[in-house]
Amino acid sequence: MVRNDYIPFSSEILEVIKHTDIEYTFRMAFRGDVKPGQFFEVSIPKYGEAPISVSGIGDGFVDLTIRRVGKVTNEVFEHYVGDRLLMRGPYGNGFDLENYKGKELIIIAGGTGVSPVRGVISYFAEHADERKDMTLIAGFKSVKDLLFKDDFPYWREKMNVILTLDSGEETTEHKIGLVTKYIPDLKLQDVSKAVAIVVGPPAMMRFSVKGLLERGFREENIWISHERKMCCGLGKCGHCKVNDTYICLDGPVFNYTKGKTLID
C-alpha cells in the first residue's frame, strides 16, 4: 500500500529561540533522516500549511526558523514550548555536503536565507579538516534583523566571517554594505576549484552569483536555493513548477548550471 503523505504528524515544541520580534527558531521533536536545505510543511488546522526550511539538525530534533508574515506563520507564533505543531516532510533534495568537501568554500547568505545553509555552515565549522579555507558572508537589513547571533562567535573561530548590515553604524562585529560588496576582495587560493553556495532573496542571489562569476568562479561550482509557492512538497500540486522542473522535488537546491535556466 502507498503511504499517505498528506497526513501530518504532531510534533512538540521543545524550545523557542527568539532572534527578532518576528523571527523565532522553533526546536521541534523529530527523529529521522534530514539534510540541511530540506524543508517541512508546517501546519495548523484551520490556518493551513507553510513550507519551512530546516535550520538546524540534532539528536531528536530539527530547528525551524520562522518569520511571521501571514496566516499560518502568525498562528505558529501563538504557540510555545510544550505546545504541538503539525508537520510533514522532510521534502526536497537539500545540500549534498560531498560537493563541498576538500574544497575552498564560500557561503553567501542573506536574511532568512541563512536558515537553509546554517546546517552546512555548522558542519564545516565542526569539521574544518574536511574542507579548505572557508568564508561566510552573511547579510541582514539592520542590527534588529540579525539571526543566529549566538552562532557567530563560534563560526568566527572556525572560518573567515563577514557579517554585514544594509544600514547603520559599522562596529567591530559587523560591517555596513550589501553582501555583494565583499565578493571582489575575497581571498581565494584557486578560484577555478573554489565552490560557493548563495541563498537569499532573488535579487541578492542574482547579483551575488554575478559577482562570483566575475571573480572567475565556474558556473558548475556555484549552488543556489530557490523558493516558490508550494502546496504539497510532493511533486503533485504544480505550484512550484518552473519549465520542466519541480522546485519541491528537484530542488530547492540547484547547481547554478541548472538553476540559471529556470524561466518563470
Binding site: 484551520k46 490556518y47 493551513g48 500549511e49 509557492k229 502546496c231 504539497c232 500540486c237 505550484h239
Partner: peptide, 30 residues
C-alpha cells in the same frame, strides 16, 4: 491543486483539509 482548510463552524475545533482544483492562469497561483 491548492490545499484548503475548512471548518464547520467558526469556533469549533473540528474541520477538514481538502485539495481543490487550481489553475496556472488564475491570479494567486504563484
Amino acid at each position: 491543486f491548492t490545499m484548503q482548510d475548512l471548518y464547520y463552524t467558526e469556533n469549533a475545533k473540528v474541520g477538514e483539509r481538502r485539495r481543490v482544483w487550481a489553475s496556472c492562469m488564475v491570479d494567486g497561483f504563484t
